[in-house]
């Protein structure tokens, strides 16, 4: 049983910069409070590897947000569209 997820994030109301995971303040040091947003767990795989039997990747989400995330079982293909799903172990893994 898996569930497609949205990732918790935040948005700078002035610059429009989106952060995942959410930040309280904008990254520019202005101390502007960010607004909570949900970011669809959909993106393009930029790189991947495996370590101790687990797969990891860099996923480029919308709004120029890059995350380092767990992946489902390989093999994987850079440049492909990926979506995040929450598994029974409550971990979000991205897969094609």
């Amino acid at each position: 049983m898996t569930t497609t997820v949205a990732l918790p994030g935040s948005k700078d109301p002035v610059s429009g910069e989106v952060y995942v995971p959410p930040r309280r303040f904008a990254a520019d040091g202005s101390l502007r409070e960010c607004q909570p947003v949900e970011v669809p767990a959909r993106g393009v795989l930029a790189s991947w590897t495996s370590y101790n039997g687990e797969f990891y990747g860099l996923v480029d989400l919308a709004n120029a947000v890059r995350i380092q995330a767990r992946l489902g079982d390989g093999p994987h293909e850079v440049g492909s569209d990926y979506v995040g799903v929450r598994g029974d172990d409550d971990v979000v893994r991205f897969q094609p």
């Binding site: 930029a46 790189s47 590897t49 370590y51 990747g57 860099l58």
Partner: peptide, 17 residues
């Protein structure tokens, strides 16, 4: 953090491409 080897392996594979 994920294991450091993971982050730098991701750098490596991105550069390889």
């Amino acid at each position: 953090h994920h294991p450091p080897a993971v982050s730098f392996a991701l750098w490596a594979r991105e550069r390889m491409a």
